[in-house]
Simulated assay, not measured.
Amino acid sequence: MKPTAVIALGGNALLRRGDALTFANQLANIKIAAKAIAEIAKEYRVAIVHGNGPQVGLLALQNLAYKQVSPYPLDVLGAESEGMIGYMLAQELQNLMPETQVSSLLTRIEVDPHDPSMQDPTKFVGPVYDREEATILAEAHNWTMKPDGEYLRRVVPSPRPMNILDKTSIDTLLEAGHIVICCGGGGIPVCHTQMGYQGVEGVIDKDLSAALLAKQLQADKLLILTDADAVYLDWGTEKQRAIHQTTPAELSQYNFPAGSMGPKVEAVIDFAKFGGQAYIGALEQGLDVLGGQAGTCVVNVQ
């Protein structure tokens, strides 16, 4: 049996920071991602988790434009973006690998409705804004804005993933030889109540969901592909330097931004401690990152 790799694609890798939020731009980047994944799928059973920060933010903005109904909640918008991106990825992968079955699965993930992030939003969604525009939007819609590089961007609650409710379906599809697109946008956040499962107003971080999925599948490797070619120390300064090989203990010494590299680092540390091999690197270099020729590799050393 082939080894199993969980591949996490950042929402900003599929729609580059600063790009217009157009279908054409997303499709161009998804074609790049599909080519990288198709090469990996020759050697691994593959489960793909994708981000949705720019896309779910765009859907929220489009919701606001129609005044006759109240805006849809974030869990529903997350499901919409999961279907949209999953369809695009599945189609491009199928075109590249016509003999391989590709399945996109809407995935519910259980979270705690009282997670601390509900009071302290950290998950970036939507486009970036200059300070003047961000201030106007924040006041108009009661949004929370935080810095994203030199710009400002909306942030929403990001509860931690606790359990993948549709894990059995993912297992079944992988066993049948499918490439599986799942936990899209971090999965649809739901919580258990006396009336059954209910949606939660938030966007789960896809990197933490990918690490949870990799552990629950007992995958061999976790690969996080983003718009950065590695993990850097002192990013954005003259002293910036890439980390190529490291351990969970070494990487844990450093602090990374909560809204960007922080969850990726947390995810690879978590999975490496679990016993797997974890990687962070650029979308275009996927196979090289997985082979250790590019990006950052994190392996637990006893």
Rank of each mutant, 00 (worst) to 15 (best):
F124L: 10
L174A: 07
N12F: 02
E201T: 01
G262H: 14
G83M: 03
I280S: 11
L223P: 02
G295V: 07
S158P: 07
A211M: 07
K67W: 05
K2D: 11
Q194T: 02
V155R: 04
K167T: 13
L21M: 15
A24Q: 11
N163S: 15
L61Q: 06
W143K: 13
E99A: 14
N95T: 01
R154S: 13
G196I: 03
Y279E: 02
E92F: 09
Y72P: 14
L222I: 02
A228L: 15
K206G: 03
N63L: 14
R131N: 07
A34L: 15
E43D: 08
G276H: 01
I179L: 05
E110M: 03
A60L: 09
H244A: 04
P159W: 14
P71T: 11
M1T: 14
G186T: 00
L21H: 15
I179R: 06
E150N: 11
E133D: 05
S103W: 11
Q91Y: 15
L165N: 08
E150W: 14
E80F: 10
P71K: 12
F274Q: 09
M118V: 12
Q240V: 09
S117M: 05
L58D: 03
G18Q: 06
K239Q: 15
G86F: 04
T296L: 01
R241M: 07
A176K: 10
Q240M: 14
L290M: 14
L74D: 05
R153G: 12
F256R: 09
A214W: 07
L21E: 15
Y129F: 11
A5K: 11
Q218N: 12
P157Q: 12
A38E: 08
E139G: 13
R16E: 11
I179G: 00
G177L: 12
A242R: 02
D166E: 07
T246N: 07
E43L: 15
L152E: 11
L27S: 08
V190A: 12
A258S: 12
V180S: 06
Y151V: 08
T237C: 14
A267C: 04
G275I: 03
K35A: 15
V6G: 11
L208Y: 01
T4M: 09
G292H: 02
A36S: 10
G259D: 12
Y72I: 08
I7P: 02
V6S: 08
S169A: 10
V125I: 06
L287A: 08
V125C: 05
G126C: 02
I204F: 03
A294T: 10
P116E: 07
V203C: 04
L15W: 13
S117T: 06
I179D: 00
M97W: 01
Q285F: 00
G11C: 10
P248L: 05
E201C: 04
L106R: 07
E139K: 10
E238I: 02
V231G: 10
